[in-house]
Design a protein around this nucleic acid. Sequence first.
DNA 1: AATGAATGAGGCTTCATTCAT
DNA 2: TATGAATGAAGCCTCATTCAT
Lengths: 203, 203, 203, 203
Amino acid sequence: MPRIPAAERRSDFVKAAVEVIATHGIDGATTRRIAEQAQAPLATLHYCYNSKEDLFADVFKFVAGKFRDVIEDSDPHADLTVTARRLLRGAMECYLESANFAATALELISWARRQHEERGIGVYNQAVDALRSALRGAASDHPLEAETIDQIAYVIATLADGFALNWLTYGDRSAATEHMEVTVSVLDSWLAVRLESAPAALS
Amino acid sequence: MPRIPAAERRSDFVKAAVEVIATHGIDGATTRRIAEQAQAPLATLHYCYNSKEDLFADVFKFVAGKFRDVIEDSDPHADLTVTARRLLRGAMECYLESANFAATALELISWARRQHEERGIGVYNQAVDALRSALRGAASDHPLEAETIDQIAYVIATLADGFALNWLTYGDRSAATEHMEVTVSVLDSWLAVRLESAPAALS
Amino acid sequence: MPRIPAAERRSDFVKAAVEVIATHGIDGATTRRIAEQAQAPLATLHYCYNSKEDLFADVFKFVAGKFRDVIEDSDPHADLTVTARRLLRGAMECYLESANFAATALELISWARRQHEERGIGVYNQAVDALRSALRGAASDHPLEAETIDQIAYVIATLADGFALNWLTYGDRSAATEHMEVTVSVLDSWLAVRLESAPAALS
Amino acid sequence: MPRIPAAERRSDFVKAAVEVIATHGIDGATTRRIAEQAQAPLATLHYCYNSKEDLFADVFKFVAGKFRDVIEDSDPHADLTVTARRLLRGAMECYLESANFAATALELISWARRQHEERGIGVYNQAVDALRSALRGAASDHPLEAETIDQIAYVIATLADGFALNWLTYGDRSAATEHMEVTVSVLDSWLAVRLESAPAALS
DNA sequence: AATGAATGAGGCTTCATTCAT
DNA sequence: TATGAATGAAGCCTCATTCAT
């Protein structure tokens, strides 16, 4: 009965959609289920969004925005190794904090791949771009080759996503917490070797 | 009326399902589309399988079997480091060889997570189990702690899946080929550090 | 807040409805589309009219009124043949001037037939009545049988509507202009024969 | 329960659609109502036709075919005047025989106009084309200018459609029967004048 | 055994209308 | 007075599945 502004209502539907996508998958996220989750009549969803696709576009923005927030929160003055480690840990903590968010992010990546002909469009690409930007900022003192930045971004993304898949599959929080440490140590080991040789090549 | 043996018919449907799942996702893999891809009448699918879920169970077996084949192909007499590297590379080559297989595997992992209450059931779990067995075989000379084996299996799975996600997202084969090398070097770096200290702890 | 008088508002909606009905048909003339065409919020339409049917009743009046204007414009002192010709030409020119008006008139005729059980109610009937009145006025000197008047009115209506259907179907203005002349000549030929014998029967 | 071949089922739906279109108009002809009229579940309609549009295309064919039958039934050896009169009478009798057919034909004409950008496509055009062919056949002895044929076809179509509109509006069969005679006499009067001068121009 | 025919359930979307402000 | 917000009903269509042959 309370007449809520449309903007706020839309946000409710986005949150509901994240829950439903995580639980039922992208294609199982029917308008009925989303409306029900948002405790709103089905028609109200279509009053706020012209189409399901419009709603999903907003979900998309929401997820991409959360990634960007996590990535940009990292201290820009830190060392490259420290920054990389923080980015990876931040992503994993974000996944660990909300399994639904993690699941929805993976669903969206899968969905974007199927939906659009133009590859690389979507959450994944935006997140990797943000990773690259953050890394470039941290490496501004001793500029690395673009290729090195790309590789580090790739490894962080790979480790974070691989971690997410495992955590979502087993749903075992304590195991995941341990895996987080292992994953960080993997990055550390590789970076130690990788950055030891790379700057040398530049000097 | 070619009178195709039932077994072959079922195999056709499984292969068709893999294609369709990769292209349209698990929920987009409708019985109609699968039957069409298999060039069979819709009713024939239900003649071979009681339900869609039964068919998917076979798809499941097929994918899990392919993983097991890749893993068990690796030389059981090799060194642990070499074995780990081979397992990772084998998985990635398998993904690279058929993007459809990779996509279907990821879809199935996602699907299994949503479908069943009991976590850890499914393709992912079977693959990790197989990884563990292979690693144990390679480490039979100097037995490691179970935890170490678990960690190595986790890291291999994580790296392989993270690699797959990237490759599927961009669909860039040459980039993926380079990523494969990077990914292997990540494993190598970490194993070098990890195995250097672990045995020490045992001695 | 332009504070537009309610009467003007209603007139805007009627005009918008005529456009929309012509373009999308009676059933395609949704309240949304009409409000949009009138550049007014949807709720305003229902503020001015209790229901869509009420609005359509006004559209009805508008169209019937325009017909009456055309018919009553014709010189009441003219000869019967001349009057009949003028009425037919007037109707056709009216159709030709605005295809939207023609289309809406035909839609309303169709709609009225479907809507009401009582046949003959509607735009068509009102127009034919007006035709009869005009013809009676022109024939006041040598009163004809009512049947003759009825027949002339029927023929004029038939020719005008048949013309409209053709013009709307092809949308070819130059062809329609030629058809107008042919149509008038059809009426002339028939009237010449018809009125030659009819008065004779009365004398 | 009887398993009827799809082709026959389709014919049932076409007939049902004609009824429903006549009663409720093109846009009121919902799939639900058509299925109900055909005494079939809604889903069965979509088993026989991929879409509502496909069904309507068949309705289209059915109506156009009936027109063609009526027109081509006319004796090809007859005189032009006789042929024209027969064509007109045939069309009107066809309308009179089934008001539903008449209504559906007019609805389809209206619908085709709204639906397709390319003007002149549809039932109307096909019927007029068939009229022209029939007239050309009858006039083969003393070939007339194409323009004359066109005009005669136009006048027949105009009179028949105008007649139909009146008959549908009032639903008065006895009045319509009288109108039929009047309408034929209108054609006769005009043809007498028209063909008297036209051949002269050719001789 | 094999497959066209058939269908209830549910998918997304739009409708005319009402409510609260 | 005006109008964004809200909604039950109904629109077309596709789904997995079953039935009859």
